[in-house]
Amino acid sequence: MELNDIIKEENLVLKKSRLLTDNVMHYCPGCTHGVVHKLIAEVIEELGIQEETIGVSPVGCSVFAYNYIDIDWAEAAHGRAPALATAISRLHPEKYVFTYQGDGDLASIGCAEIMHACNRGENIVVVFINNAIYGMTGGQMAPTTLLGQVTSTTPYGRDAKLNGFPMKITELLAQLDGTCYVTRQSADTPAAVRKTKNALKKAFQNTRLKKGLSFVEVVGTCNSGWKMSPVDANKWMRDNMFKKYPLGDIKDV
């Protein structure tokens, strides 16, 4: 069997989502953002909700998320995406509204906004990328940075006495009555990617059912910030991040 016999439209198994634009992602090679963007695009495409979906991008590496998924977008101020999403969802109750936020954006500067959006049970989806570092600004400590982890503002490793502890914001948010679905996933293996996609799909379906706020954390890598190769970063994540941030559903009401 020749390659030409295989590479035919009828044999297609996987291709780039129609909802991903042709813009080349600005992310570093191997960045988790790219995988999660792809999954969101696929979920929106498969649910047939492109015309009804409005995304809110954060400040951080994913500030340009709006360049990559072909839907309407608002770009929020740092940490405020849940506030924008609240108003958009309340004023467009029939729409699918989601925020896409990193750990600095969501767990540090936007802590109040995410807490209260969750507490009000806004009918939105929150996608939270936790790579334990500030990527865009050059690898500073995030609230989720692990103890001992070296960043540009914890050059001797995160020290609990000096910097406090890694923040399990997802577990905190699961305590709030307004959240209906809280899960933590990853995107480092084909199986993990499939699970994350299922979680995202479920989250958007919850919006359709008006169940409240669905929160999908994806533990990811920042290989540039961590100063590792993408493959080594995945290994480091599995060996270190997963211990502090165990994968799986935390809440499913």
Binding site: I6, L12, V13, L14, M25, Y27, G34, V35, P190, V193
Partner: peptide, 16 residues
Amino acid sequence: SCGLVCPDSVITVYKA
């Protein structure tokens, strides 16, 4: 598997 983990969606997969 390759296409699933690809962050830049540059892989198209066929199967016969």
